[in-house]
């Protein structure tokens, strides 16, 4: 390997740092602007031309999310989103764990084909079948309900969850569950007491992706929930943003975006490892 003279190496490092920092600024700029807009006072948030550094800090835009703008109580919609997302996470984890365990460790006829069949969902995006999905919801009297929406999210996260959990369980050496079974454990308790703790990273990854999918989704929420009270955050923001015949309160809108985006960023930062590993295993498929 060629060794560069010290000076050139220093220059190269410096250049690298400069480029990286410039790019970092570019990537962070929108987020910085979003956050500052949300924390400006409403008067300053409405300023034209806009200020780039807030002169006034205020939580008013967040407070106004509670109902002053276009008489929409955004706090209610945040709760809706939370409810749907947590329900999705819970159900996806539960169903994927059971299913993934079975595909990895239990035996039944046609297992391979069955697994492949369930994963076919990957190949067809739900956008393409939203039209009949709407009718199915209506037939089940679940149209315009958060439960119905959650069921859709759960269903479309299952293939990924099953895949992750099957992998997670599959990598555990056979001796461990076998030992548990010898000790007289039933399948279920072998699963919960022995396998699950070891497969926990898989569970975390599954939960994380399920949460993001439900919390961030716009398309299904737009179509399947039409009652304003039941809307989730992304759809509510669209009402704010279209501001019929009135002015858009950009401060409140960005406050809404902050509430919508920051949990994702924080979750990612805390659980980075799981998120990236999830991405990579999804890629491997």
């Amino acid at each position: 390997m060629k060794v560069m003279p010290l000076k050139t190496r220093h220059q190269a490092t410096l250049a690298w740092w400069v480029v990286c920092i410039l790019l970092a600024v570019l990537f962070l700029l929108p987020l910085y602007l979003m956050v500052t807009q949300a924390f400006k006072s409403p008067a300053e948030a409405a300023a034209i031309p806009p200020t780039l550094w807030p002169h006034s800090w205020s939580l008013d835009s967040f407070r106004r999310m509670g109902g002053e703008v276009a008489s929409i109580n955004i706090s209610q919609h945040i709760l809706n989103s939370l409810y749907v997302s947590l329900a999705t996470v819970g159900a996806v984890v539960l169903v994927s764990t059971l299913g993934g365990y079975s595909f990895a460790r239990l035996n039944f006829p046609g297992k391979g084909v069955w697994f492949f069949g369930l994963l076919v969902t990957f190949m067809i995006p739900f956008q393409a079948i939203i039209t009949p999905l709407y009718l199915v919801m209506r037939a089940l009297h679940l149209q315009n309900s958060l439960v119905g929406l959650a069921l859709v999210y759960i269903t479309y996260q299952l293939p990924f969850g099953l895949y992750l959990m099957r992998n997670a369980f599959g990598t555990i050496p056979r001796e461990i569950p076998e030992a548990a079974l010898l000790d007289g454990c039933s399948t279920l308790s072998s699963l919960t007491r022995v396998m699950l703790p070891i497969a926990l990273p898989g569970v975390v990854t599954t939960a994380l992706f399920a949460f993001f999918a439900a919390w961030n989704d716009f398309f299904a929420a737009l179509i399947l929930v039409t009652d304003q009270d039941r809307m989730t955050l992304p759809v509510t923001l669209s009402i704010l943003q279209s501001g019929q015949f009135g002015t858009i309160d950009w401060g409140v809108l960005q406050a809404g975006v902050v509430v919508s985006a920051i949990p994702c960023v924080l979750l990612f930062l805390v659980l980075q490892r799981y998120y990236v590993s999830g991405l990579l295993s999804g890629a491997l498929k």
């Binding site: 034209i48 279209s242 501001g243 019929q244 015949f245 009135g246 858009i248």
Partner: peptide
């Protein structure tokens, strides 16, 4: 403009004529 910029433009005093409705009066 989808309805949120022309009103404020008129309200800023820079526009001569702007069609709208009674709901614009409070603004």
């Amino acid at each position: 403009d989808q309805g949120t910029n022309s009103g404020p433009a008129f309200a800023s005093g820079k526009i001569g004529i702007y069609p709208s409705g009674a709901f614009f009066i409070p603004t």
